[in-house]
Amino acid sequence: MTFALAIEQLLNGVQLGVMLFLMAAGLTLIFGVMGLINLAHGSLYMVGAFACATVAAFTGSFWLGLVASLAASAAAGALIEITVIRRLYARDHLDQVLATFALILIFSEGMRWLFGSFPLYLDIPPLLEGAVALPGGGQYPLYRLAIILAGALVALGLYGLISRTRLGMRIRAGESDREMIAALGVDIRTLYTLVFALGAALAGFAGGMVGALQSVQVGMGEPVLILAFVVIVIGGIGSIKGALIGALLVGVVDTMGRLLLPQVLSLMVPPAQAGLIGGALASMLIYILMAVILAVKPRGLFPAQA
């Protein structure tokens, strides 16, 4: 394995990790503050991707599409919070899972009804097309670098928001003692709607950015949702820092596993077999990682509340 390949794969892993972080941050924030398991988070990701593809196709500008993905998913998030989710805070997790699963079906069928079964396509903006040279003689797509940068900025922004602003203070207060912050006169209902919309906007933003790399289609959110759950379980449920570390860990382990496992196995078995077994093992790797981490630290790497 050459140096250039190692660097490129590391970047691929980080890029996947950054995307997962955008999903996982919202998921973990919502769980941390409201104690709610939101299975429909993947649907908000899909809403973002569809909004971006539609607006970009209509206006010809990817950037307007990206703004639309933020706006549409935040609006969709606020809407479901007010109409459905709000009634679930006091219920147990099973009710929440059932209701948010129903939301997945409603969103998927709704999107199919609006946009049809054929995937939509979103082109990379001309500004970010092509590849840039890497040290060691490799090349890397500019768009993927831009995703890494955008993800890093969002992570910084979230950190600033939560540790430096009044809203962040309320979010932290909401995490540690819900009744007390309500008793102090903070409008907890608006706070919850805001947090939910923020989480939704992050998911939609991820959807819009990924839409340009892949096809935008109904059901695109669920595979990512599963990975995002793995991330927050590894990182510690409710912790933004855990979500960031967990996401990068999952991204890098998954990418490197897909590269290295077949190669390691090919030392022992014929290459065709190594490809098959290695490929299958690589897709299990992050779940094995999750199991190992849970065995050592049952509450995840950075448990939010002691």
Binding site: A4, L5, Q9, N12, G138, T255, R258
Partner: peptide, 9 residues
């Protein structure tokens, strides 16, 4: 991305 990197190398 991971497969494309392997193709390149």
């Amino acid at each position: 991305a991971a497969e494309i990197a392997q193709i390149r190398a």
